[in-house]
């Protein structure tokens, strides 16, 4: 665990038939940083995240996540990461507390630990009055914040967030990022995909993916200087325009 990098990716590739969704990407993520994984729709972000979190078998290449090989030890990875998917992943027909107890339970937390964590989340999210309400009755932004809090309920050293702020209003997005930054302060490494370029500014390192490849990577400041771009948004648009994929 004394390694500087929590994720080391080497020529990771995923092919679906003749379509190469992720094309030999290699990169590293430092322990404790917020790593922004940027890219347009269809660039291959979700596919990459699924391979790293053990949901999808890689076609070739390898990666080490925490201390485990993604090709051989995916179940060990799963015990040590948090994951929040693009699709809303809480149970709509359960209450806030029931969801927390369920996810705490399947990660093997003790009852007292679950109790402690739920109290904490309820306090941080100011949802005292909503804890016994069904999740489906909450506004989307609240749901997303709740889903994030639940994904780090078991205090994993690394969390994958796949477009956590999709469809969320700007104010709630800001609040959401405050949660992410707070988690980073506690030492959690956050791997976040997004296509909101303003969110890139919160990240320590940003990588920009186009057509399954990583076209640019570095700190936001470094990237702006290197590509001589006023902001990440401009840089992203100029890179994304080179895309040959029809999804964009």
């Amino acid at each position: 665990m004394n390694n500087e990098y929590i994720i080391e990716v080497d020529s990771l590739t995923k092919k679906f038939g003749s379509f190469t969704a992720v094309d030999k990407i290699s990169f590293t993520v430092k322990r404790g940083e917020i790593f922004g994984f940027l890219g347009a729709n269809g660039a291959g972000k979700t596919t990459a995240i699924k391979m790293l979190s053990g949901l999808l078998q890689a076609s070739s290449g390898s990666a080490r996540v925490i201390d485990f090989n993604i090709n051989k030890e995916s179940e060990k990875i799963k015990a040590n990461i948090g994951y929040m998917s693009q699709r809303f992943s809480l149970y709509d027909d359960l209450t806030v507390l029931e969801n927390m107890k369920f996810y705490g339970g399947i990660y093997g937390l003790s009852n007292s630990k679950i109790q402690m964590k739920t109290d904490e989340i309820v306090k941080v999210l100011h949802i005292q009055d909503y804890k016994d309400k069904l999740v489906k009755s909450l506004p989307l932004g609240w749901k997303q914040k709740l889903a994030f809090s639940i994904s780090i309920l078991h205090e994993p050293p690394l969390v994958f967030l796949d477009e956590p702020t999709g469809g969320v209003d700007p104010v709630t997005r800001r609040e959401f990022w405050e949660l992410i930054v707070a988690a980073a302060h506690q030492g959690t490494t956050l791997f976040v995909t997004t296509h909101y370029m303003d969110e890139a500014e919160y990240c320590d390192t940003v990588s920009i993916m186009v057509d399954g490849r990583i076209e640019a990577m570095g700190s936001p400041k470094y990237l702006k200087e290197q590509f001589n771009s006023p902001d990440i948004h401009t840089l992203f648009v100029s890179l994304a325009r080179q895309s040959k994929r029809t999804e964009i």
Binding site: S53, G54, L55, E75, K78, A79, I81, Y83, S85, R87, F88, S89, L90, Y91, D92, Y103, I106, Y107, G108
Partner: peptide, 12 residues
């Protein structure tokens, strides 16, 4: 509804 993915990414 997609919750299966959250189960699959857990150590269960």
């Amino acid at each position: 509804i997609g919750t299966i993915e959250q189960i699959n990414v857990s150590p269960i």
